[in-house]
Design a protein around this nucleic acid. Sequence first.
DNA 1: ACCTAGAGTTTGAGTCGTCAAACTCATGCG
DNA 2: CGCATGAGTTTGACGACTCAAACTCTAGGT
Lengths: 225, 225
Amino acid sequence: MLATETVENYLKAIYLLQREAAADEAPMGKIAAALGVTAGTATSMVKKLVAAKLARHERFGGVRLTAKGTRAALDILRRHRLVETFLVDTLGLDWSVVHDEAERLEHAISPMVLDALDRHLGRPAFDPHGDPIPRADGALQESEAMPMSELGSGDAARLVRVLDQRGDSLRFLRASGLKVGATLRVVAIEPGAGVMRIRPDGGSIVSMSTTAAARVLVRPTRDRH
Amino acid sequence: MLATETVENYLKAIYLLQREAAADEAPMGKIAAALGVTAGTATSMVKKLVAAKLARHERFGGVRLTAKGTRAALDILRRHRLVETFLVDTLGLDWSVVHDEAERLEHAISPMVLDALDRHLGRPAFDPHGDPIPRADGALQESEAMPMSELGSGDAARLVRVLDQRGDSLRFLRASGLKVGATLRVVAIEPGAGVMRIRPDGGSIVSMSTTAAARVLVRPTRDRH
DNA sequence: ACCTAGAGTTTGAGTCGTCAAACTCATGCG
DNA sequence: CGCATGAGTTTGACGACTCAAACTCTAGGT
Ligand SMILES: [Mn+2]
Ligand SMILES: [Mn+2]
Ligand SMILES: [Mn+2]
Ligand SMILES: [Mn+2]
């Protein structure tokens, strides 16, 4: 919209890297990797963001969005996640493919179409992966959740969000019956092997690495064993 | 998809200009005007299309798409018109605004999303303006229709297509009750003034210039006067 | 047959986003 | 401390797309 498609992609990437970094700063290398460009390209692009007052950056330091940059990033994130929701809920596409589609469509959605889409979908608060959808005013409520890897043996929980957008991860989870909203129970943990065994309600037991499990967020349920 | 977004726009513009030109050739100046670009830019871009075997062109002559270029143009046209149909039928947007929206969205629709959209819409044959939607294999059936300007006084007809995509034209037609599928009758013609008076079924009489009426296509109905 | 107005082309230059490769900085290991 | 290594930056170049302005061709009217 206001910015070019490339700028929109940088803003979104920086926003997401900033959330996940401890220092609340996006490292230049990660930005470059997220966009599939060389570090030099990312450096020069960040300079333009700084010139446009969308980001702050000092030589050899991390990148941080300004309030204006954050607002723009949230707007793009809203478009991205509403499009994903549309592709799954209305068109019936699989949640493992919609991320890449939304990556392109997000740049072509005008405010008018966005609002019509939002209305058509019933103003959803979460996308198919459980990611919160920023509201039109930029408000964003993250859902309370913990990594599935932190559950103990025997614990029951509801799956509320999947952080990994990679297609093969999502296909594995869907095939295992682990979708957003599903309830599950930890049947065993093998700390030595770094593996936990999970039984989704109404499904059969699956094993996954604790690192993979850490990218799945759950909310523990009162345990009616 | 295969081509860049700019190339897609050129191909679609050339295709449409070729259809409407007597010589089945798109004049360079019209191409430039359609894309909002200088004539020099269009010339150099057409050279690239020729190099890519998408078009034929000799110096100072008109531009003609190759079979490959025509196929690509039909593919873009299909995306454009399906998107327009979606915006009107599913999202409820007005037919006067969807053209510009589709102009951007058409480039971001993958084959997978396109097919899901097509299925969701019930594989429509015509878009909201009555323009035929090319099929996935490139087949395109134009509907039989004549310009409304060629009707005689007293003639009854059904409106089947609107050629002018300009927002104000479409808003005028909608406000007058002249939408695709509506039946109407010519109540008077003023050749001197270049105006004809039309009564849409269930609406009140409106005047429009014969040049405007020439851009509205109708199919005469058996006249139960 | 000419000449000119309009249409089309060429040229030179600029912007945007990108890369490769040379370079600089920060730091933690020895 | 000193310096090697990895992270980040700079530079020069390029492809895609565009414009302005100079130039060239074509066709229609006299
Ligand atoms: Mn994107
Ligand atoms: Mn998502
Ligand atoms: Mn377009
Ligand atoms: Mn249309």
